[in-house]
């Protein structure tokens, strides 16, 4: 097992390099650059734009720019954001904690909801409770998260139970530690609902259909025939087999813990990476985007690696070669 992981790690290095190179080329191939917006400002002369271009190093050949960037990354320097004139690492770090907290909370809520409801509905297939939950899932699954966020905000503005967005109250800095934790969690409620409800309704359908796939398999019937209780049959025999695709999915989730959900962040006014990166993308803030591409690809590779390892543990049959 350890050997496999080490081999995967060695393969990952050229992989991440390849991803960043291709991404760099694609970003640079897109029309315009960070300075395009300045060109439409009547009060900024073309000479000033040219000088800025030089000071950002954008006048050099693209490949050279990439290798400069790579060289700096190897020295743990992600470069400077054009828009913020501040180190990319600082910018990302300043938002990462909130995004991480939100992603973690919503992943936990999503997956626990999905598994509980998914297994329950598979077990109670075609009973009224199954039909009601399946019907409700139609409604929530197709409602985009940002629309739910929007409606929650609207409802919150009519009642007074929840804050209208934000990550914490203005009084946060004068609170004791337990109060701070409670304040944070309280502000997490609406975003977590907005992020979890659509994905949980999506995921529980997958859980349900995958459980149903195995519930009638021969080995399950055999287990039933052995006289095991229905609960044990489901938990022991069906669960082990049906878990497989979800471990792979969980690997992807790991890759997205630090990507944030820009639209929900914008509506609920969260202090996350999603908005930062969306703005960077729209403004073509090169090194900030590259920072997020690098982060995303590393997390994806690691996430996939762990997912594969977990898969091999849960389902020994997958452990081929």
């Amino acid at each position: 097992m350890l050997k496999i992981i080490i081999r995967r790690l060695i393969v990952s290095i050229p992989l991440v390099l390849g991803i960043t190179l291709i991404s760099f080329l694609i970003i640079q191939a897109a029309p315009g650059d960070y300075l395009s917006a300045l060109k439409m400002n009547p009060q900024i002369s073309p000479e000033t734009v040219e000088r800025l271009r030089k000071s950002f190093g954008l006048d050099q050949p693209v490949l050279l720019q990439y290798f400069h960037w790579l060289w700096r990354v190897l020295h743990l320097d992600l470069g400077i954001s054009f828009a913020y004139r501040a180190p990319v690492a600082d910018l990302i770090a300043s938002r990462a904690f909130n995004t991480f907290l939100l992603s973690l909370a919503s992943i936990c809520v999503t997956w626990s909801l999905a598994f509980i409801i998914g297994i329950f509905t598979a077990w109670r297939k075609n009973k009224p409770e199954d039909k009601i939950l399946m019907g409700a899932s139609y409604l929530f699954m197709y409602t985009p998260g940002f629309l739910i966020a929007f409606l929650l905000l609207f409802a919150a503005s009519r009642s007074a139970y929840f804050p209208l967005g934000g990550t914490y109250s203005p009084e946060y800095f004068f609170m004791s530690v337990p109060q701070k934790i409670i304040d944070r969690l309280y502000h997490l409620v609406l975003p977590v609902i907005a992020m979890s409800v659509p994905s949980a309704s999506y995921l529980f359908r997958l859980v349900r259909s995958n459980f149903l796939e195995f519930i009638n398999e021969t080995f399950v019937t055999a287990a039933r025939a052995k006289g095991l209780s229905e609960r044990r049959v489901i938990l022991l025999h069906v669960m082990r087999n049906a878990l497989n695709p979800f471990i792979t999915l969980l690997g992807f989730e790991f890759a997205t813990v630090l990507s944030g959900a820009a639209l929900i962040e914008i509506i609920l006014n969260l202090q996350g990476l999603g908005t930062l990166l969306l703005k960077a993308v729209l403004a073509q803030d090169l090194y900030l985007i590259m920072g997020s591409v690098l982060m995303g690809s590393v997390l994806l590779v690691i996430g996939n690696m762990f997912a594969d390892a977990a898969l091999a543990v849960v389902d020994p049959r997958v452990r081929v070669e």
Partner: peptide
């Protein structure tokens, strides 16, 4: 993994 990491935007 390459495809999933590309900035599709």
């Amino acid at each position: 993994e390459v495809l999933m990491s590309l900035p599709s935007f």
